[in-house]
Amino acid sequence: MHSDYLVRMANDISRFFASDPDQEQAARNVLGHLKRFWDPRMRAQIVEHYRAGGTGLSDIAAKAVAQLAEEEPAKQT
């Protein structure tokens, strides 16, 4: 999928959780949402985008995807 599409969705999710004063917790909530509702191929693609620089990802989204990158294998098909 196009990275812009995934980045936009990740940022939308992040905006909801951003109201948590604990930004680390906010990122964990975004991570939880990605794991619970995103198809693994979408997760793999946004991880790939993050590893390629993560253009467009908001701070919280980037933190969440960084954690996802640590948990997910480098490449998924």
Partner: peptide
């Protein structure tokens, strides 16, 4: 054990050929 694609995700995946 993993979630699948939602309708709009299916459309995006169709456009990327997968």
């Amino acid at each position: 054990p993993e979630p699948g694609l939602r309708i709009p995700n299916m459309f995006e995946a169709a456009l990327d050929g997968s």
